[in-house]
């Protein structure tokens, strides 16, 4: 799949933003006034910024409101509805915390559930696609959810929660790569089933329909970016999970130093997740590539 910057920015930033909102809604930490303002500014900035980025790849962004209508069948629509509901509920909760010094915990818990629900619905947009075996796995929502929770705990400054969550996210990441690499072969789809000619012999794409490129090849067959996949996996894993874990485990006495190191951990995690998300798209093989003798 073509790793479009808009979807990578969207899933990376909004995942982190909704992860932070999840912990803020649960009162981890309970914040009011100016401190709450800063926390919510970061959370809403990430969540809304990510959602805004996702509209950049639309052919007609001015009609985006229509995407809220088909929640009965469409995961993309469900995600839109869930995101707006989460932002509205957490917006109210934030107003209470920032301006009124209140902690309306029932509202916060509802906002937390909706925030996590938004991450889940985002992941299901990809998971539902049988055409992309690497995404069509239970590990895809597990990965989106574990990344959002680990990043959210990290940003919320919940070190004792962030440590195990980072470890879990790291394991999910490794499992996703391991099973993802075999997913296309395991799906049983190949040029033989694609053409229905497989039982007659070995099928080979002899001539493409045209000499130039087309929308399908640009969107679904992204071979160039896979060259450095192994190196990028090391970078994604190192920055996303290993480095933040090491930084959190370092014994520092001064609060100032602790905050700096935590900030570094967040930035490293963000860069690692972005690299992982780039691979998520670039390495995904759409079965339509088979018709062109590519994957």
């Amino acid at each position: 799949m073509h790793p479009a910057p808009s979807v990578i920015i969207f899933t990376t930033l909004s995942g982190l933003g909704f992860g932070l909102l999840f912990f803020l809604g649960l009162g981890l930490p309970v914040v009011t006034g100016m401190v709450a303002f800063v926390f919510y500014a970061i959370a809403f900035g990430l969540a809304v910024g990510g959602l805004a980025a996702s509209t950049f790849h639309l052919g007609h962004p001015e009609r985006a409101w229509r995407a809220f209508t088909q929640w009965k069948t469409s995961w993309l629509s469900r995600e839109g509805v869930c995101a707006v509901a989460a932002l509205l509920v957490m917006g109210l909760y934030a107003i209470g915390a920032v301006f009124l010094g209140q902690n309306w915990s029932a509202l916060g818990v509802l906002g937390s559930v909706l925030s996590l629900g938004t991450v889940f619905t985002t992941s299901m947009i990809y998971t539902q696609l049988k055409t992309i075996p690497r995404w069509n796995m239970k590990l895809t929502p597990a990965m989106f959810l574990s990344f959002a929770l680990a990043g959210g705990a990290l940003l919320a400054g919940q070190v004792s929660i962030a440590l195990p969550l980072l470890a879990v996210a790291a394991l999910v990441q490794l499992a996703y790569w391991k099973y993802g690499d075999d997913a296309l072969a395991a799906s049983g789809t190949n040029l033989g089933t694609a053409t229905g000619l497989g039982d007659r012999g070995a099928v080979r794409a002899f001539e493409p329909p045209h000499t130039g490129s087309n929308y399908l090849l640009r969107e679904f067959v992204h071979v160039v970016g896979r060259k450095h996949a192994q190196k990028l996996r090391v970078i994604a894993f190192g920055l996303g999970f290993a480095l933040p874990l090491v930084l959190l485990l370092l014994p520092f006495e001064s609060t100032m130093l602790k905050h700096t190191v935590a900030g570094l951990a967040v930035l490293a995690h963000l860069a690692g997740v972005a690299a992982s998300r780039w691979l998520f798209f670039a390495q995904a093989e759409h079965v339509v590539g088979l018709y062109y003798g590519k994957r």
Binding site: G59, R63, T131, Y215, E219, H286
Partner: peptide, 26 residues
């Protein structure tokens, strides 16, 4: 009503849908 998100083309195994670059619709 099409917003040109491209998800329908992603879901089609046959490559039957193409987003028109000039019109931004499927």
């Amino acid at each position: 009503n099409c917003i040109g998100c491209g998800l329908c083309a992603w879901s089609c195994p046959y490559g039957a849908r193409e987003l028109d670059l000039a019109e931004g619709v499927m």
